[in-house]
Computed example of a mutant assay.
Amino acid sequence: MTAILISEVGPRDGLQSIDRIMPIEAKKAWIAAEAAAGVREIEVGSFVPASLLPQMADTAALVAFAGTIPGLSVAVLVPNLKGAELAIRAGARKLSIPFSMSETHSLKNVRKDHAAMVAEIGAIAARVAQEEDPPHFEVGLSTAFGCTIEGHVPEDTVIRLAEASIAAGAAEVGLSDTTGYADPAQVRRLVRKVKAAVGDARLNSLHLHNTRGLGLANALAGLEEGITTLDASLGGLGGCPFAPGASGNIVTEDLAFMLAAMGYETGIDLDALMRVRAILADALPGEPLYGFTPDAGLPLGLDRRTA
């Protein structure tokens, strides 16, 4: 049975995309409940200035809290070297920097062109290497499948910048469908090409959105090409505040159910995962929560032990 890691990104990608600020105690309850349900990696926040994203102002405190949960990989997003310094100081075990394949989006998102981003990746990699027990450093190749500002993003650009990221010192790259433009054929093609360029072990993860209803189909296409880590957000919260129209992360509950039904090993207790939604509903009253599986319920006869 193949093991697949579902990386929960709701506390970061989900919450950064809504206006209201979730109380830290509710965030802690969310993180603890998902970990108890068997989720093994959670992106708890991002080290960006609170003036830009006040929803992320408590990230250091959440890293400290999540770090006390046995067996949980604590991940964060960092926009630059300063953010990486803060993340390392806080004790995060996985750092991910978004590197937009659309240069226009990169300038709007982190105010750096491609050359400056490669230099920033190199600086973070060098800083990570100074640690006695260095955290895992990954580059998320965002807008890899298309951009709401530029439109088409050439696959050759993605491959070239993936190679540049690894050469600069990143441990691996991940492909991100930031704007919900991907289709299964494109996912298969780009995963194959990037793996061929940087090596199988350097591309393991996909961050997909369900903006046009293709999230799970794209996830399946990635699985068929050897992807072993899939990002998802509880209740489908999230998008990208710097990419107009980019809504709809894959729903964690739907993804976990699909994988369980197909016989993949995730370690997640599906019943316990469904119950975590109540924490979000109570803390964010009126905020839309998505997902077909929570509405329909789990089917009779599903072997929950395979989850």
Rank of each mutant, 00 (worst) to 15 (best):
L300S: 14
A260W: 06
T179W: 02
R40N: 07
L300F: 14
G67C: 05
L298P: 06
E253I: 01
S247V: 12
L289C: 06
I227W: 06
T252K: 02
T293Q: 12
A37I: 00
S96C: 11
A125N: 07
E150D: 15
I4T: 07
A123S: 13
L206Q: 02
L220F: 13
P54S: 12
D200V: 08
A26I: 00
V118T: 13
L52Q: 13
R20S: 15
L237F: 04
T157K: 13
L52A: 13
A168K: 02
S46E: 09
A36E: 05
L5W: 13
S142G: 14
D13F: 05
L107E: 13
G301Y: 12
L141M: 05
S100P: 01
H105G: 07
V76G: 09
L161G: 11
G45W: 04
G180D: 06
R111L: 10
G263H: 09
S165V: 08
G226M: 04
E103N: 09
E132R: 11
L15R: 02
E163V: 13
H105R: 08
L300W: 12
K94C: 06
K108R: 15
K28W: 10
S17W: 06
D177V: 00
S17R: 07
A182Y: 00
A256L: 03
A33P: 02
